[in-house]
Simulated scan of single mutants.
Amino acid sequence: MTAMPDFDTQSPAAVRAAIRSGAWRGYTNALARGHVQGNLMIVPAAYADDFAEYCRLNPQALPLIGRGEPGSPRIRAIAADLDLRTDVGGYMVFRDGELVDTPRDIAGEWREDLVAFVLGCSFSFEAVLQAHGVRLRHLDEGNVSAMYVTAVQTKPAGPFGGPLVVSMRALRAADAIRAITVSQHFPQFHGQPIHLGAPGLIGIEDLSQSYGGHGLTQLHEDELPVFWACGATAQMAALQARLPLCITHHKAHMVVTDLPVDDRLPA
C-alpha cells in the first residue's frame, strides 16, 4: 500500500520531484488534478513521423499534447523541468514487439535518436466531470478506471495500427448522460465516449478481465459501463509495429504537466 504523501499533491512540479526522487510510487490519477496528465510514447526518430500520422488519423484515442525533439527527454512547452527519463514513475520497454522490462526510470535506455510524444489522458477530465456533478465511483473507492482492448480497429499509418483500447467508468444513467454532455467539449482528453452499455458490441467479453489487470471492473445494478477511447491504444500499436525499441508509461503512471485544465464549458 502506498504511504500518504508528504508533498504538495496538487503541485505538478512537486509531484514530478517526488516521482523523480522515489518518494512517490503510486498512481497519478489523484494528483495535480488541475493540470493536464498524458500518456507517454517514445519511438526511434525513423518512426516518429509515422507515429505522428497515426495520432492524426486517430485523434480521439491519441490527441497530441506535445512532441519532443530527437534525443531530448524534455518537452519544455508542457513543463520546463520535466525529464521524461525519470519523472513518470513507471515505464514499459518493448523490443521487437515484446515487453522486456518495466523499470522505474529509463535513463539507461535513452538514446540520441529517440523522440517522445505525450498524448491526452482521461485522468485530466475526471476532475472536470466531478466539477460538473458526475460521480466517479472508482475515485470514491481509491481506484482507477479499467481499460479494455476492443474489436474496433484503428486507422493504420506506417507500421502502426491495431485495436482501439478504451477506458471504462461505471456510471448511473443520469451521470452517464452528463458525462457525455461534458466530455464532448474536451477533445484533447479523448472527447465524448465511444460506447456505453453492452460491452460485447465492441468486443469486450468479460469486464473482469481488464487490460493491465487493474481498475474498477464490477458494476452495481444501477450502473452502466461507459467507454472512452484511451491513449493505451498506442501500446497496442507498438506491439503490432514490432519496433526495435519503444518505450511507454506503465499503467496509470502518467506524465504530469504544468498545463492547466480549464473545466469551463462553452457558453
Rank of each mutant, 00 (worst) to 15 (best):
I202F: 01
T9R: 11
A131V: 02
R135V: 14
T233L: 06
A116Q: 04
R178A: 13
L196A: 14
V165A: 14
L265C: 12
R20D: 07
L31Q: 10
L139Q: 15
R242D: 02
Q218M: 10
H214E: 14
Q153W: 05
T233H: 05
F123I: 08
N143T: 11
D258H: 05
W110V: 04
A30V: 08
L139I: 11
I194N: 04
R25W: 07
L171C: 14
P159W: 06
R178D: 11
S72G: 09
L201K: 14
G38H: 09
P163A: 10
A157V: 03
A23I: 02
A14S: 15
L84S: 03
G200P: 03
T102V: 12
I204F: 03
R76N: 08
G38Q: 13
Q37V: 02
P5L: 03
Q10R: 04
V152Y: 06
D113T: 15
A238E: 07
G108Y: 02
V118P: 00
D83A: 05
P225H: 00
L82C: 05
L82K: 14
R25V: 10
L40Q: 00
L129C: 14
A151S: 15
I65S: 06
F94M: 05
R16A: 05
R178W: 09
T233N: 02
Q184D: 06
D262R: 08
Y91V: 08
F7Q: 11
F7C: 08
E141G: 03
G213K: 09
A52E: 14
F227Q: 05
F117G: 07
D262S: 09
T86N: 00
P103W: 00
L196I: 00
L219D: 11
G66P: 06
A80Y: 03
A229K: 04
A61E: 13
G120S: 10
L64F: 01
Q235E: 15
A237W: 13
R95P: 07
L164R: 10
Q10T: 02
V43A: 06
H190E: 00
V36G: 06
F189L: 00
G34L: 03
L40Y: 00
G71D: 08
P266G: 01
S145L: 13
H250F: 12
E126W: 03
